[in-house]
């Protein structure tokens, strides 16, 4: 579904990604794991075209989309839940979800998808008139995921969904991941919480200092000595 070929990118003179190639097939859940500063967030920003790649090709469902502007990427079926959730704090939950349905194609199915998001996260229905910024971190994450689902994406990008949340909430976030997978979404997730994320995805890539170091089935990476030593502390 999504394919990156030899992608490099950076900020001004600073290069954050070097020759990254990866792919996500339809129905798969794939993780990009790695330490802080490895370029994981940059990778998702490139996929959403918030940053222009300096080299390499991006393609979605076989179509190259390097030249598509950032605000049209969502129409290709790629929705992102950004790092730190980034809800509109002084808009209600319902208005945040409405922003997720902004594109013309999504507007026509707004009511139906709102029902779907509310059935997935009943708590959001209870809180629909509350300002998003006043909810707890876990609730905000639900709202942020719901907002991304409002566009009816084929591919869902999740940037560090567990970051900055209390340990109990982190458990429930990974519960949410499973719920989303059960709905049949294709997911690309970036996480530092390696142990947890490798349990909910099919495959993973290890990104270090902007380069893909290792890749394979999640179970294989979870068992690999290198990852166990460097990241799991065993």
């Amino acid at each position: 579904m999504l394919e990156l070929n030899g992608v490099s990118a950076g900020y001004g003179a600073f290069q954050a990604l070097f020759d990254v190639s990866l792919k996500v097939d339809a129905g798969e859940a794939v993780a990009v794991i790695g330490p802080n500063g490895a370029g994981k967030t940059t990778l998702l920003r490139v996929i959403s075209k918030l940053i222009e790649p300096s080299a390499g090709a991006l393609s979605m469902e076989g179509r190259r989309y390097n030249d598509v502007p950032a605000h049209e990427v969502i129409a290709l079926g790629i929705a992102q839940v950004p790092e730190g959730r980034r809800l509109f704090p002084r808009l209600s939950v319902e208005d945040n979800l409405k922003m997720g349905a902004y594109t013309p194609a999504a507007r026509s199915r707004h009511a139906e998808r709102l029902e779907f998001v509310y059935s997935l996260f009943p708590k959001m229905k209870e809180r629909r008139l509350q300002m998003a910024g006043t909810m707890s971190g876990g609730e905000q994450q639900m709202c942020a995921i719901g907002r991304a689902l409002m566009s009816g994406p084929k591919l869902l990008l999740l940037d560090e969904p567990s970051a900055g949340l209390a340990p109990v909430v982190v458990q429930s976030i990974f519960g949410l991941m499973r719920t989303i997978r059960e709905q049949g979404y294709t997911v690309l997730i970036v996480e530092q919480n390696i142990q947890q994320v490798l349990k909910v995805v099919d495959r993973a890539y290890l990104l270090e200092t902007g380069r893909i170091r290792q890749s394979g089935p999640a179970a294989e990476l979870l068992a690999s000595d290198e990852i166990r030593r460097a990241y799991l502390g065993v």
Binding site: S48, H71, A75, P89, R90, D95, K98, M99, Y102, A106
Partner: peptide
């Protein structure tokens, strides 16, 4: 929708493209 985007953009301009909005 446009009015909601007008209220939203002052709260977080940088992520507007992720909503499909051209700031």
């Amino acid at each position: 929708y446009m009015g909601t985007a007008i209220r939203a953009i002052s709260q977080d301009r940088a992520i507007m493209p992720l909503m499909g909005v051209d700031p």
